[in-house]
Design a protein around this nucleic acid. Sequence first.
DNA 1: GGAGCGCTGTATCGTATGTTACGTATTTTG
DNA 2: CAAAATACGTAACATACGATACAGCGCTCC
Lengths: 286, 286
Amino acid sequence: MRFRQNGQGGEKMISSIAELISDRIGTMPAGERRAAQTLIANYPLIGLKTVAEFSQSAGVSSPTILRFVARLGFQNYPEFQSALQDELAAQLQSPASRTLNPSSPGGTVSPMLEATLDNMRETFRHLSDKQLADIAARLADRRGKTFLIGGRFTDPLARYMAAHLAIVQPNVFHLAGQESVWRDRLIDMGKHDVLVIFDIRRYQDSLVRFAETAHQRGVQIVLFTDQWLSPIARFARHVIAGRTAVPSAWDSSAALFVVAETLIGAVTRQLEAEGAKRIRELESLR
Amino acid sequence: MRFRQNGQGGEKMISSIAELISDRIGTMPAGERRAAQTLIANYPLIGLKTVAEFSQSAGVSSPTILRFVARLGFQNYPEFQSALQDELAAQLQSPASRTLNPSSPGGTVSPMLEATLDNMRETFRHLSDKQLADIAARLADRRGKTFLIGGRFTDPLARYMAAHLAIVQPNVFHLAGQESVWRDRLIDMGKHDVLVIFDIRRYQDSLVRFAETAHQRGVQIVLFTDQWLSPIARFARHVIAGRTAVPSAWDSSAALFVVAETLIGAVTRQLEAEGAKRIRELESLR
DNA sequence: GGAGCGCTGTATCGTATGTTACGTATTTTG
DNA sequence: CAAAATACGTAACATACGATACAGCGCTCC
């Protein structure tokens, strides 16, 4: 319809301007690429504003914007805007079509995304509000210390959670480095402390041993694992089992990541009073 | 906000222009009523076109359209259009995925989860297969080295990605530790290398500077950022803009996390041949 | 290291757009 | 039914917007 380009196409089906852009963004000079990126990032509303506003948002000059739309095959800026409006109109008419990128079939994107979204829904289905509230309360309890550790691939999750928790409360420690190093930290742990462990298969022996001794010392363990449950579940006070299956060579930790973010949010809310003061203090330190 | 009218009303809650119109359509003269009806019928796109087009669609003259928007309380036509655009923006930001959601009944599912799922859908909607394939191809290109780095909260994502990529191919480096340490690594970077940066607001100056000098050295930058685009986007070859808004004190990096996992999967698939051999070797090393 | 090309921004121009004034038509009211 | 008031459209106006010419700059390729 509109996007018949120079070559007698037929090779590729371009059905939206967004696709057209990502198709050509590789062949664009730097300035026009910035225009393309800002348009995609705030698609499509920036394209409906004036050239001046668009150019300012993108940090380039007006002519660059015009060259950009010219490269997309439009005769002039108004024609480009009309195309965007038509697209919007079609989208608003049939709300069902707004679900996903129309590149679904056969693409590499959507099976992965679909599986991940399913994983999250499943994970949260088996997770009660009460359970999350309990864990959040435990993590917000300031009488004890909080330690976090993860396995080979999940340690970044422990880091991520630690980075946030350490801001809203004191005594949060991420256990990193060599095994011998964090094993020695066991001596600091007691029955008022919490140990958050991330462990998905293949479960690491070192982590299991670590959890066991911690448990013997009375430490409360919160375990993030997969649906097959790490052996650490045996010692854990709270177990969060996330779905990990995706069409990829690797397991996905995304569901656990979202649970972690949810907990971070809950703990923060719980510590709001002291947390706010603490955050202000930290700001002033910077 | 915008619709405070003449009287200081607290009488009626007007939250959209469409409501405002149907509220006043009774008091309008015939011509303006026709304008109102045609706008409602094709809401809101006709209002984004020019006065001439609007007037022609409604079968009235231009001044009638202007008197119509004036009666709604707007100073001039552009102001009216801006209001419509803002409304559209808000609508597009949070897609009404509430329509079909099998996970709601009874238990109050965390609004956090809902927002996160929306964020992912939105993020991937602006992301084409082609774009991901391009980035994956670049990351799988074994002629150069791959460096990864992140900001205060996003560095764990860089770690996560690095942990996986380093298994399927050599020459993958996560830049950690003190700024001076990784800044010195710039000397190893050239035009065949790729630098993956995670940077969401508030954007870190140190990262921006780092990206700039890397860019000057010809390094290809892949940027993971939020929808407001880190200033690094200026130097980036590829930009991935993830949605981050959630009902929490913190921004969410979950959408970026999923994109990262998707890329990891794509790269792995691309390197399948050599990757499989490599993985077997690693297995035997353990 | 030099010549050529391509990209980008500044400044200028023409025009399409929103705006306003005014005259005519239509309805309302005494 | 007359007279006034309101509503509407035509036409002229001014502004701001998109378009273009040109010069400076960096980059690539001999």
